[in-house]
């Protein structure tokens, strides 16, 4: 079911969806969004691409091994929690920094963001491994 329209759209949509998912992730702490939603949107983008081309091509686009991605995400979520331990607070307590933003504004960055980033990566990793392994099965004669 290779179609030129689908391929073109998928190729165009992939970066947009990834950007959108990162946007969702970043603003998730203050507006609707977050790691779960962002991860699912990113995964959907890649899946769209894999349906248009092939799972193998999609895996090439992802570049990273999905098990590694999942593991890295888990590690990041758990690791963000240990920052508080070094600051003498209970595991997973949020620790925040104030960074100077453009034009004199300040950006608040905290360990919960990195936790959410971990969630984001895990969701992408798991969703893609599930659908890729299924789709690759499909590809085989």
């Amino acid at each position: 079911m290779r179609s030129i329209i689908l391929s073109t759209v998928a190729r165009a949509m992939l970066p947009i969806l990834i950007m959108f998912s990162l946007f969702l992730l970043w603003r998730g702490h203050n507006e609707p969004g977050g790691g779960f939603t962002g991860g699912l949107v990113a995964a959907a983008g890649v899946i769209l691409f894999s349906l248009a081309y092939s799972p193998r091509a999609a895996r090439r686009v992802v570049r990273v091994d999905l098990k590694t991605l999942t593991g890295f995400g888990l590690l990041m979520a758990a690791g963000s929690g240990t920052v508080a331990v070094f600051a003498g607070k209970p595991f997973l307590t949020g620790v925040w920094w104030k960074l100077a933003g453009p034009q004199g504004s300040t950006i608040e960055l905290g360990t919960p963001f990195f936790f959410d980033l971990g969630v984001y990566l895990v969701v992408i990793g798991v969703t893609l491994s599930i659908l890729f392994s299924k789709a690759e099965e499909e590809e085989r004669p």
């Binding site: 998730g28 702490h29 203050n30 507006e31 609707p32 969004g33 977050g34 790691g35 779960f36 997973l92 949020g94 925040w96 608040e108 905290g110 919960p112 963001f113 936790f115 959410d116 969630v119």
Partner: peptide
């Protein structure tokens, strides 16, 4: 430091 309470519950 978060306005989206659902997300704050999830990650914090």
């Amino acid at each position: 430091h978060g306005r989206n309470v659902v997300n704050v519950i999830l990650v914090d």
